[in-house]
């Protein structure tokens, strides 16, 4: 597994309403980016590992995202399922000084 991590500037923070998610293609990967009410951002793979649901349409709090299709919840920090689903890929995400959301992708992602 390669350890290269690259940072990608994805979108202006203002493009994502507070407490919601939006989906983006980042370096050829489908990524869901979430904007928490606390001001933080999180990023995960865009499709739910259970049945392919669009996670960016899910509901979030500070800790989890709930897939809109079957209401499976996943920890946004670890990607782990709170039930018995496979884990999600999670990506580090930050808001840059100019208000742009950046997502860090690790090289060997599938």
């Amino acid at each position: 597994m390669s350890a290269t991590t690259t940072s990608h500037r994805v979108c202006p923070l203002a493009e994502i309403p507070v407490g919601e998610g939006r989906a983006y293609v980042v370096a050829g990967e489908q990524v869901a980016v979430f904007r928490h009410r606390s001001g933080r951002v999180s990023a995960t793979q865009a499709r739910c590992p259970h049945a392919g649901g669009p996670l960016a349409d899910g509901q979030i709090d500070e800790g989890v995202v709930v897939c809109p299709l079957h209401l499976n919840a996943f920890d946004l920090a670890t990607g782990g399922s709170t039930g018995d689903q496979p884990a999600l890929a999670v990506h580090a995400a930050t808001v840059d000084a100019d208000g742009t959301v950046s997502v860090q992708l690790t090289g060997s992602a599938s």
Partner: peptide
Amino acid sequence: TPGQFRSSLPLVDLP
């Protein structure tokens, strides 16, 4: 909201 009707699935691998 911004992007209220923006697609959440630019996904090619959906069932």
